[in-house]
Each structure stands twice: as C-alpha cells, then as structure tokens.
Computed example of a mutant assay.
Amino acid sequence: MTSEATAGGHAGGGEPVWKGEPGNTSTLLGRPAVGYLDAAADTLATVKREILRRLAPAPGQRLLDVGCGNGADVLELAGRVVPAGEVIGVDVNERAIEEARARGTGTGVPASFQSASAFALPFADGHFDGVRAERVVQHLPDPAAAIAEMVRVARPGGRVLVADPDHGMWAPDLDDREATRAVLAWWFDNIRNPWIGRRLSGLLRAAGLVEVQARLMPVVLDGVTAADGLTGFSDAVRRAGELGVLEPDRARALTANIAEREADGGFLMYGAMILAEGRKGD
C-alpha cells in the first residue's frame, strides 16, 4: 500500500503547512509509487529476506500480503507455497494492482491480486496461515484497526508479521547537525505515523497476538542515489529551503555538503526497519 507523504505550501506566509497524507496512493515522497517500490526493493533486499525467513512460507499454505504494491513479494511467496497453496495480494492503489497482475501473468505460481482496504479485508475469519504487511502501517490513519483486521483473517495459530521503518532513526552524516535535524524532523513528520516502528510490538499485543517478537534491522544507504531512492532526502533539503524550513543559504550549503560527501565516496545515511510478528492464539 502506498500513500502521498509530502508537504508543501505556507499558511499566510508563515510556517510550512503539513498537508498530511490525503489518501492519494499513486505517489510516495512525490514519486510514482510503482517505480519507488522497485528501487526500494533493491535497497531493502536484506530486510526482505529476513521477512521471508520469519514468515516461513511452506507448500500448501494460504498467505496474504496487505499493501502488496507491485506484487513482487506476493510472487516470491507464491513460489514457496506450490503446488496446493495460495498467496493473495491486496492494495488500494488500482494502478499497482494492474502492475502486479501484469507481473504475475505467465509465472505459473498461485498468486492473485485484488483492490481492497486494509480496514475491510474481503476474506472470512481465519482464512490465512500467515499475513504480512511491509511499509504500510506507517501511512494508515488507524494502525490498530488495520492490524486487528489482519489478525481477524489469520487462522488460530497463524502468524502476522508487520514491518515498518522508524523515521526517527534516520541519520545522514553531514556537518550541519542542526540543519540536518530540522530537515529530517520536518520531512518525516509529513508521514502519518513516522515513529510507528517503535509501536508495532505493542500494537500486535493489543490486537491479541501472543509470542510477539520485534527485531530491529539496520538499513545502510550507501550513497546519495540509495538515500534519495528510499527517503527523498536531497529533495527534502531543496524543498526545505524553498518553503522556509531552512534559510535558503543554509539549505544550499547542506546540499553542497551532500555533494562533497558523495564526491569523496563517503555519503552514508543510516536507518532502521522494525520487524514485529506474533501468533494468533489457538
């Protein structure tokens, strides 16, 4: 599932206005969602392998991917549940569902896709052996309700795994610490739930899951291309100068510092994904 996560505009010439997330699921951080998901998948390959390992798909299982985006993860899972299993991906983004169906054509794996809201999954209680959601809950207006719905469609004994970044943990290596903190706080506060990562285990317990575990997975963005592909950081600095979050000269200096680090081969940005999972009681 994807969502608009940018800010813009001024209120009477004063502070930048947070437009929040209006529900337009065609873009993320100002970019087409499908292309963004492809780029992010490369950066998060290690995280995705760990999600796959912990979900432990097996032949014959029925699995659900909530907010499946372009369907790549569904197809990967479907290849693990053959011959008698089934994997379904749902997303509110109709274009993403179209892309996912196109990717699945001719693969021969038991995967299907449909448009659906995380708050009203069109499946019976206890239908799935496992449910996953990756980088979805951060964008939702009611995380607890969405997780409760994932738990509802999991069978007794089934697993629910939710993975999201904690946007309070991004750390680029730049000289002007005050300006860097200001940009990060402003940019990621335009995501509906920027600190959701640290809340996930509590939300899973509140939804009735047992044996809840959480693991922090480091994310190392090596170079500006990787950082921009996942977080849009360079664009955030530029827009911060345009919108008055930073003085224009200071924003330009921060942009120059990013370029200097990149030219030296030393630009790094660190972050974290939190993977939380639990079992539905028997």
Rank of each mutant, 00 (worst) to 15 (best):
D176Y: 01
G71E: 11
W170K: 06
A206R: 11
E21V: 07
Q114A: 13
L121T: 00
T6N: 12
G271R: 01
P110V: 03
L268F: 11
L184Y: 05
V162M: 09
G265Q: 02
G278R: 00
A272F: 10
D125S: 07
N93F: 07
G12K: 09
Q138G: 12
A185M: 10
N190K: 08
A259Y: 11
D125C: 02
Q213R: 14
G104K: 00
L209C: 06
A5R: 08
T225C: 12
D65P: 00
V74Y: 02
D142G: 05
L200D: 00
A7W: 15
A146H: 07
E277L: 09
K19V: 13
N93A: 11
I258Q: 05
A39W: 12
S115P: 12
V237Y: 06
M169Q: 15
L37M: 14
S117H: 04
A253I: 00
D73H: 11
E21N: 14
R250E: 14
D249S: 13
L64V: 01
T2E: 10
R135M: 09
A226R: 08
W195N: 14
G229R: 06
E76L: 14
G202T: 02
A240L: 01
R250K: 01
F233K: 01
E247H: 13
H10M: 14
H10L: 15
V109Q: 10
V17S: 07
R103S: 00
D175Y: 07
M269S: 03
K280W: 08
D189N: 14
A276M: 01
T27L: 11
E242F: 12
E247W: 12
E247G: 06
A56T: 07
Q138V: 08
E134C: 09
G35L: 11
K280L: 04
L209M: 05
G23M: 04
A116F: 04
A102F: 10
P59V: 02
I191E: 09
W187E: 12
V109G: 04
D42E: 14
V183P: 00
S234I: 00
R155H: 09
R192C: 09
A144Q: 14
R95Q: 15
M169L: 15
L216S: 13
K48F: 09
G202R: 02
E211A: 13
G158L: 09
D91Q: 05
W18F: 14
L37T: 02
L268D: 06
D42C: 06
G35I: 03
G85N: 05
L209Y: 07
F113H: 01
H167Y: 15
F233T: 00
V160T: 05
L254F: 08
V183D: 02
Y36T: 02
P172C: 08
A33R: 00
I274G: 04
T225A: 15
G223L: 09
T255I: 09
G20P: 00
G244D: 11
P156K: 07
L268P: 01
R205E: 15
G79Q: 08
E50M: 10
R155E: 08
G104V: 02
A133P: 02
R250C: 05
E277H: 08
W170I: 05
G126M: 03
G14I: 04
L44G: 03
S115H: 10
A133N: 03
V87M: 05
G197K: 00
F113Q: 02
F267D: 01
L121E: 06
W18C: 13
D249L: 07
D38R: 14
L203A: 04
D222N: 14
G85D: 07
T6R: 12
I147P: 01
N93M: 03
